[in-house]
Design a protein around this nucleic acid. Structure first.
Length: 224
DNA sequence: TCATTAAATTGTT
DNA sequence: AACAATTTAATGA
């Protein structure tokens, strides 16, 4: 690690912080790498870090009482999550799994709380992010009732284009069909077929290792 | 810069 | 899960 990249300084929430706050954030944030398929934490663990994806792909999921696996969200480079559990200081309610080799930035809870208490810019960001997540989750409540694999794939794709949660501003996401299948809870073959159907409908375009979105609104509301 | 090779991704069964 | 086809990335002439 020769040149240290400024992980914290380039984070979305860093824009609104003062120099002093930024410095504090840097000192309280570590970097960690997770191998493909490994767990960042299990449901019930106490993970005292606020977590951001530097590079890679993670999924936030849980297993319902009847044993059905549910994915709540995917997290790509630049997205931060876990503020709910950290704020409350309570155990995680979800499993966190990385779908490919992933580098994470992890901010200590003490640092997170300090910023929350002392930085106007930081708490403003938190409110915005929590609000956005709330909206997304409400739209997701009916997710497990959606039977059509195509709809599951469509909505999983659309989630990556929330401008607040994923501020990349791009109209394409770099993700393989296999990884998307893991997110949507379908096999790669099914994901492949679903994507072809969605492309046929003109909602997106499949490229190599990436998916370009054409009709985001329709993907968000796709029904079986 | 171009050609060759390896690795990853996709499409199909 | 296995297979072939295709694209990308990496390598070196």
């Amino acid at each position: 690690m020769g040149t240290k990249e400024d992980i914290v300084g380039t984070a979305i929430w860093a824009e609104e912080l003062t120099a002093e706050e930024l410095d504090r954030a840097r000192r309280g944030t570590i970097e960690k790498t997770f191998a493909k398929g490994s767990y960042i934490c299990h449901r019930g663990d106490k993970l005292d870090y606020w977590t951001g994806v530097i590079d890679g792909l993670a999924k936030i999921s849980a297993v319902s009482s009847d044993g059905k696996a549910m994915t709540f969200a995917g997290a790509t480079s630049g997205s931060w999550f876990g503020e709910g559990s950290v704020l409350k200081g309570e155990p995680r309610q979800y499993d966190l799994v990385v779908l490919r080799d992933t580098r994470l930035a992890m901010m200590h809870r003490a640092t997170f709380m300090w910023l929350y208490d002392n930085s106007r810019g930081f708490s403003r960001f938190l409110v915005r992010q929590l609000n956005e997540r709330m909206g997304q989750f409400i739209a997701t409540i009916e997710y497990d009732r959606i039977l059509s694999p195509r709809a599951r794939v469509a909505r999983n794709v659309s989630w990556f284009f929330n401008p607040v949660l994923y501020p990349t501003g791009k109209d394409a996401i770099e993700i393989s069909q296999e990884e998307l299948g893991l997110l949507a809870g379908v096999s790669r073959a099914v994901a492949n077929r679903a994507l072809q159907d969605l492309e046929e409908e003109g909602l997106l375009r499949c490229e190599h290792g990436r998916i370009r979105v054409l009709k985001l609104e329709r993907l968000k509301r796709y029904e079986p």
